[in-house]
Amino acid sequence: MTVYFEDIEVGTTERFGQYEVTREEVIAFASRYDPQDFHLDDAAAAASIFGKIPASGWHTCGMAMNMIVSHWKECGTADASMGGLGMDEVRWPHPVYPGDVLRCEIEVLDKRPSASRPEMGIIKSRWSVFNQNDTLVMTLISNGIWRTRAGKSG
Protein backbone atom coordinates (compact mmCIF):
# COMPACT_ATOMS: atom_id res chain seq x y z
CA MET A 1 0.00 0.00 0.00
CA THR A 2 1.40 3.37 -1.01
CA VAL A 3 1.39 6.14 1.59
CA TYR A 4 0.51 9.48 -0.03
CA PHE A 5 0.84 13.11 1.07
CA GLU A 6 -2.68 13.00 2.51
CA ASP A 7 -1.76 10.05 4.77
CA ILE A 8 1.15 11.80 6.48
CA GLU A 9 0.17 13.56 9.72
CA VAL A 10 1.88 16.56 11.29
CA GLY A 11 3.30 15.70 14.72
CA THR A 12 4.03 12.05 14.00
CA THR A 13 7.49 10.67 14.73
CA GLU A 14 8.96 7.51 13.25
CA ARG A 15 11.99 5.73 14.73
CA PHE A 16 13.90 3.22 12.64
CA GLY A 17 17.17 2.10 11.14
CA GLN A 18 20.43 0.49 12.05
CA TYR A 19 23.53 1.45 10.10
CA GLU A 20 26.96 0.25 11.18
CA VAL A 21 29.72 2.69 10.25
CA THR A 22 32.91 1.06 8.98
CA ARG A 23 36.40 2.52 8.77
CA GLU A 24 36.70 1.44 5.14
CA GLU A 25 33.53 3.28 4.18
CA VAL A 26 34.52 6.42 6.13
CA ILE A 27 37.88 6.59 4.37
CA ALA A 28 36.44 5.75 0.93
CA PHE A 29 33.79 8.47 1.21
CA ALA A 30 36.25 11.06 2.52
CA SER A 31 38.82 10.18 -0.15
CA ARG A 32 36.30 10.95 -2.84
CA TYR A 33 34.12 13.74 -1.38
CA ASP A 34 35.71 15.31 1.73
CA PRO A 35 39.47 14.66 1.58
CA GLN A 36 40.46 16.54 4.72
CA ASP A 37 43.41 14.88 6.42
CA PHE A 38 41.57 14.20 9.71
CA HIS A 39 39.11 11.99 7.77
CA LEU A 40 41.90 10.04 6.09
CA ASP A 41 44.97 9.81 8.31
CA ASP A 42 45.22 8.43 11.84
CA ALA A 43 48.01 10.82 12.89
CA ALA A 44 46.18 13.87 11.52
CA ALA A 45 42.97 12.74 13.22
CA ALA A 46 44.80 12.16 16.53
CA ALA A 47 46.15 15.72 16.38
CA SER A 48 42.72 17.16 15.56
CA ILE A 49 39.75 17.97 17.79
CA PHE A 50 38.34 14.54 16.91
CA GLY A 51 41.15 12.41 18.36
CA LYS A 52 40.52 9.66 15.82
CA ILE A 53 39.21 9.43 12.28
CA PRO A 54 35.60 10.69 12.10
CA ALA A 55 33.09 10.28 9.30
CA SER A 56 32.44 13.34 7.19
CA GLY A 57 29.24 15.13 8.12
CA TRP A 58 28.20 14.76 4.48
CA HIS A 59 28.74 11.03 4.79
CA THR A 60 26.49 11.06 7.86
CA CYS A 61 23.80 12.71 5.72
CA GLY A 62 24.21 9.94 3.17
CA MET A 63 24.00 7.19 5.77
CA ALA A 64 20.81 8.78 7.13
CA MET A 65 19.35 8.95 3.63
CA ASN A 66 20.14 5.25 3.16
CA MET A 67 18.24 4.35 6.34
CA ILE A 68 15.33 6.63 5.43
CA VAL A 69 14.85 5.29 1.89
CA SER A 70 15.13 1.70 3.19
CA HIS A 71 12.45 2.54 5.76
CA TRP A 72 10.21 4.15 3.11
CA LYS A 73 10.52 1.03 0.96
CA GLU A 74 9.55 -1.18 3.90
CA CYS A 75 6.49 0.90 4.85
CA GLY A 76 5.20 1.83 1.38
CA THR A 77 6.19 5.50 1.34
CA ALA A 78 8.94 5.27 -1.31
CA ASP A 79 6.50 5.33 -4.24
CA ALA A 80 5.12 8.69 -3.09
CA SER A 81 8.47 10.42 -2.58
CA MET A 82 9.16 12.80 -5.46
CA GLY A 83 12.49 14.22 -4.26
CA GLY A 84 13.28 17.26 -2.22
CA LEU A 85 13.43 21.02 -2.26
CA GLY A 86 16.38 21.17 0.09
CA MET A 87 17.62 20.89 3.62
CA ASP A 88 17.74 23.56 6.30
CA GLU A 89 19.66 23.82 9.55
CA VAL A 90 22.03 20.89 9.01
CA ARG A 91 23.92 20.30 12.27
CA TRP A 92 26.50 17.74 13.37
CA PRO A 93 26.61 18.14 17.17
CA HIS A 94 28.77 15.06 17.78
CA PRO A 95 31.21 13.18 15.53
CA VAL A 96 30.42 9.82 13.98
CA TYR A 97 33.23 7.27 14.21
CA PRO A 98 33.88 3.86 12.67
CA GLY A 99 32.15 1.27 14.84
CA ASP A 100 29.17 3.51 15.61
CA VAL A 101 25.72 2.14 14.87
CA LEU A 102 23.31 4.84 13.74
CA ARG A 103 19.53 5.10 13.84
CA CYS A 104 17.02 7.76 12.74
CA GLU A 105 13.99 9.60 13.98
CA ILE A 106 11.82 11.70 11.67
CA GLU A 107 9.23 14.12 13.05
CA VAL A 108 6.72 15.68 10.65
CA LEU A 109 6.70 19.41 11.40
CA ASP A 110 4.39 20.81 8.72
CA LYS A 111 2.75 20.01 5.42
CA ARG A 112 1.06 21.97 2.69
CA PRO A 113 -0.38 21.13 -0.69
CA SER A 114 1.27 22.77 -3.68
CA ALA A 115 -0.64 25.87 -4.79
CA SER A 116 0.11 25.21 -8.46
CA ARG A 117 0.64 21.44 -8.74
CA PRO A 118 -2.26 19.33 -7.38
CA GLU A 119 -0.22 16.15 -7.84
CA MET A 120 2.18 17.11 -5.06
CA GLY A 121 2.54 18.52 -1.58
CA ILE A 122 5.44 19.65 0.59
CA ILE A 123 6.33 17.89 3.84
CA LYS A 124 8.67 19.63 6.31
CA SER A 125 10.29 17.20 8.75
CA ARG A 126 13.09 17.11 11.31
CA TRP A 127 15.60 14.34 10.90
CA SER A 128 17.54 13.32 14.00
CA VAL A 129 20.30 10.72 13.86
CA PHE A 130 21.63 9.03 16.99
CA ASN A 131 24.50 6.64 17.66
CA GLN A 132 24.36 3.44 19.73
CA ASN A 133 24.64 5.49 22.95
CA ASP A 134 21.63 7.65 21.98
CA THR A 135 23.98 10.58 21.40
CA LEU A 136 22.59 12.99 18.82
CA VAL A 137 25.03 13.10 15.88
CA MET A 138 23.02 14.96 13.23
CA THR A 139 19.88 17.03 12.78
CA LEU A 140 18.40 18.74 9.78
CA ILE A 141 15.11 20.03 8.46
CA SER A 142 14.00 18.36 5.23
CA ASN A 143 11.61 19.90 2.71
CA GLY A 144 10.33 16.95 0.71
CA ILE A 145 7.95 16.69 -2.22
CA TRP A 146 5.26 14.01 -1.88
CA ARG A 147 2.81 12.64 -4.41
CA THR A 148 -0.86 13.25 -3.65
CA ARG A 149 -3.63 10.83 -4.52
CA ALA A 150 -4.51 13.19 -7.40
CA GLY A 151 -1.02 12.58 -8.80
CA LYS A 152 -0.83 8.81 -8.27
CA SER A 153 -1.27 7.93 -11.94
CA GLY A 154 1.55 10.24 -13.08
Rank of each mutant, 00 (worst) to 15 (best):
M65K: 07
R149K: 15
P95I: 02
V10C: 00
A44S: 13
G99F: 05
P93I: 09
R117H: 13
S125C: 06
A46Q: 14
F38C: 00
F38K: 00
Q36A: 03
Q132T: 06
N133E: 15
T139D: 12
G121S: 07
E24W: 05
C75I: 15
V129Q: 02
C61T: 08
P113G: 12
Q132N: 10
T60D: 03
L136R: 12
N133L: 11
V69A: 09
T13K: 05
C61N: 10
M1F: 09
S81T: 11
M65I: 13
D37P: 11
V69H: 11
P35L: 06
R126H: 03
G51R: 04
G144K: 08
M87Q: 15
G51D: 04
H71P: 02
L109G: 02
D79T: 11
V3I: 15
D37W: 07
L136Y: 07
M67I: 06
S128M: 15
W127S: 15
P98F: 03
A43D: 14
G11E: 00
E24N: 10
M1Y: 08
D7P: 05
A78R: 11
E25L: 04
G84C: 08
S116C: 10
D34W: 01
V21Q: 04
R147F: 01
M87Y: 13
L102A: 06
R32F: 13
R23D: 14
H94S: 15
T77W: 15
C104I: 06
G151C: 05
D37C: 06
R32C: 12
T12R: 11
S48T: 05
W92K: 02
P113I: 09
N143I: 10
G86F: 11
S142I: 06
S125R: 11
D41G: 03
F5P: 00
P118I: 09
A28V: 01
W92G: 00
S70C: 12
Q18V: 09
E25D: 12
A28D: 11
T135K: 15
L40K: 03
D134M: 10
G11H: 00
K52L: 04
H39S: 01
Y97R: 01
G11C: 01
F5H: 02
M65R: 08
I8Y: 00
V26Q: 02
Y19E: 13
L136I: 10
I141C: 10
W92D: 00
L40Q: 04
K111Y: 00
A64I: 00
A80H: 05
V69M: 14
S128P: 06
I106W: 01
P54G: 07
E25N: 11
D41P: 01
G86H: 09
I53S: 04
T148A: 08
A150R: 11
S153F: 10
K124P: 02
V10P: 00
P98T: 04
R147W: 01
